[in-house]
Write a protein that binds this DNA or RNA. Structure first.
Lengths: 146, 146
DNA sequence: AAGCATTGTAACACTTGCAATGACGACTCG
DNA sequence: CGAGTCGTCATTGCAAGTGTTACAATGCTT
């Protein structure tokens, strides 16, 4: 099981916006071209990012604007905006363990704090990376190409 | 997107084996009863655990034996045995970014080390918990019930 | 040797979620 | 008004997880 590609696509979108916003009009069609996917998928992701308050999208004229300084937006913010994880739990239990079994009726409580710690470790690492890191990294790589 | 319930089911299986192995014959039917699922699902998971060398399963007579001391088996070992993640990568990229776009042809290399760091943070945390923690935790909880 | 319980595995149906696509209304600007 | 763009819906295809049935293979037990 893998994290949806929508997460990496969202990071791709932010990178494109930052790199190209002065040079081109960054529309969902433009982004779909760079990512090589469908404009509708882009728009769905933009809708999620907008709902999370990370961006605003101009209707009609087109154009995407980031609402906060990109140094203040972390991978975790993007992840939370994109992944519609039920209750925010990364791990999934089997629904109805047998309450007559001593293990069955305790397994959930027993595992819960450990799984939460594992999930938190991942999320805390996500908070270390910002969109600014992404932009500067992209500029470096593009400069080194020539 | 969530981690499959097979992972937590596998941990449930190990806990049951440790708690009940002296008292009952722990078969796939017995486990299916505790977890409240299908014996075939249990057998599929047992097959994965066996392929990873964590357990042996006696055919015919039935019965599950752990091959190593449970203090030496971590959640990570179980996770690796269960999750058939492609290339071991937790995160998933969109397949074919546009090579004509400066961002498109660099995004993969740009994100790779960051995503790997995030994944490693999770996996390292998984290595902190062993099946022994699970067993002692379960015994405590069961004792406190009375 | 025969019977029984159990595992190993294949096959199938069902559900869910992601992704691709087309269509059309809503909105903004020139 | 008209062109361009976003917002959203419906449909389709596909993959994965899960539940279930069925049956062969295995190894005790008698």
């Amino acid at each position: 099981m893998q994290i949806t590609s929508r997460f990496t696509v969202a990071l791709h979108i932010f990178t494109c916006v930052e790199i190209f916003k002065d040079e081109y009009k960054v529309t969902s069609d433009f982004l779909a071209g760079s990512i090589n996917t469908n404009p509708v998928l882009i728009r769905k992701i933009l809708t999620q990012l907008k709902a999370a308050g990370l961006i605003t999208v101009a209707r009609g004229t087109g154009g995407i604007a980031v609402t906060r300084p990109i140094s203040e937006i972390t991978f975790y913010d993007v992840y939370q905006a994109i992944e519609p994880v039920e209750n925010g739990d990364l791990f999934h239990f089997h629904e109805n363990p047998n309450p007559k079994c001593p293990v069955g009726r305790n397994i959930h409580a027993l595992l819960d704090n450990k799984l939460k710690a594992i999930q938190s470790a991942m999320e805390d690492e996500m908070k270390k990376y910002t969109l600014e890191d992404l932009k500067t990294g992209a500029l470096e790589r593009i400069a080194n190409e020539q």
